[in-house]
Simulated assay, not measured.
Amino acid sequence: MEQKRVLITGAAGFLGSHLCDRFVKEGYYVIGMDNLITGDLKNIEHLFSSPSFEFYHHDVTKFIHISGGLDYILHFASPASPIDYLKIPIQTLKVGAMGTHNCLGLAKAKGARILVASTSEVYGDPLVHPQTEEYWGNVNPVGPRGVYDEAKRYMESITMAYHTFHGVDTRIVRIFNTYGPRMRLNDGRALPAFIGQALRGEDLTVFGDGSQTRSFCYVDDLIEGIYRLLLSDYTKPVNIGNPVEISLKDFAEEVLALTGSSVKITYKPLPVDDPKQRQPDITKAKSLLGWEPKVDRKEGLKRTYEYFKSLPKEELTKQPKEFVSLK
């Protein structure tokens, strides 16, 4: 049987690299694409010797050319952490708009099924809890987070437009907070920030009073959900995340207990438009995909901490990369 071909954008990023691993393992021919603005080749260099993997250093906001057929496209190219999209707001908007447009055009031309990576941030600071796929959200389009939130909302809109107008075979996953190996310690999100501070012997920084909640999904569970959604027949958005909710204050205390660190928790003002609650309703994922998370937070945190501990010491103090050519 002929080997199926899949294009994964954002391939050198946290989630993209895990997707590359999964599809190579499943017997696909994987074409990874990344402009390396936030991705890192070290996440996929173990695949370079595989006959089922090739890498294109390319920016998806520019025209995408792929020789030969394509069966699937997974569009995961996007800055995904506040520290990134606050520094490169225009690029964040462009990859959600022009990048998605290019990927959808490629899917149309190749007759490929495309899955786009949306986010729980489309719900903004939610007034409905937990968040179902039918909730339209509470987003500030002109606030500092609007460049990411609205990029993803536009991504969903143009994806559905290509589905209804052009008949492109589309899937939309709304990803909730995910963690695991290959996260960047300096990406500004709570889990790597807490672990990085603990490893450096710094006090853990909690914003606000720490009562705001998050729901953390281990990366292996998320990849399984995405894989099942891609191969399903469902074309509307589906939440994939872990519904077990925890306050950031309690989460910081869990990290302290895990690391055995004697540092304290310090509090700083809450950033503008920071969501107060985040918890997915995964009823659709359970019923449509037979999916629910398997890795509990204690085990997932242990695996993630072991990964961060194994990094070279210079990684602990590494600053976010400088971004260039981002007009």
Rank of each mutant, 00 (worst) to 15 (best):
S52F: 14
G99Q: 05
N35S: 15
P51V: 09
P82S: 11
S17T: 07
F53D: 01
D21R: 13
D71M: 07
L7D: 03
A11P: 02
L74M: 14
T92L: 10
S67W: 10
L70K: 01
H46E: 01
M33Y: 02
I64P: 00
A80S: 14
P51L: 10
F48A: 03
E45C: 12
S50I: 04
H18P: 00
T61G: 03
L36M: 13
R22T: 09
V60K: 00
Y85F: 15
G27I: 08
I66N: 00
D40R: 15
G27T: 07
V60M: 12
A12R: 01
M98D: 12
D59M: 08
H18T: 00
L19Q: 06
G10W: 02
P79I: 07
L19G: 03
K42P: 02
K94E: 12
K87M: 11
P82V: 11
G16D: 07
L41C: 10
F55K: 05
N35D: 15
T9S: 14
P89S: 14
Y72Q: 03
D71A: 09
A80H: 05
P51D: 15
P82N: 12
H57T: 11
F48N: 03
P51T: 10
I64L: 14
E54Y: 12
A80E: 05
G39Y: 03
A77L: 10
F55I: 08
M33F: 07
P82E: 13
L41P: 04
S49L: 09
G13T: 09
A77G: 08
F14L: 11
L15V: 13
K94Q: 14
P82H: 11
H75K: 06
V30G: 02
I73Q: 00
L7S: 04
I37G: 04
